[in-house]
């Protein structure tokens, strides 16, 4: 899966959890929490959606890896390979 596809699937998940957020201009290297109104329960849901939709398990100690879009791409791309 290409980096752009991973990016898109993360944004799709965020859109379903928080449809009121504007995702048109999300910066890749800034923490998602700092640019979007997401809290820890929303983050937990991102992880749960990854498991539900893509059968990807993210253990709790790796949650930090998902804090930016760049981080998501780096962490998740190998798992889709």
């Amino acid at each position: 899966m290409s980096e752009n596809e991973v990016r898109k699937l993360i944004l799709d998940i965020i859109h379903d959890i928080a449809p009121d957020e504007d995702l048109s201009d999300v910066k890749s290297d800034v923490r998602l929490r700092d640019q979007l109104d997401l809290d820890s329960m929303d983050f937990l849901d991102i992880v749960m959606e990854l498991r539900k939709r893509h059968q990807i398990e993210v253990p709790e100690e790796d949650y930090m890896e998902l804090s930016t879009l760049d981080g998501c791409v780096a962490y998740l791309s190998p798992k889709f390979a």
Binding site: D16, I17, A18, M41, D42, D45
Partner: peptide
């Protein structure tokens, strides 16, 4: 800051 109605909407999509 997160308020309850938002929590419901988000958690239940």
């Amino acid at each position: 800051s997160r308020i309850p109605m938002q929590r419901i909407l988000r958690q239940l999509r």
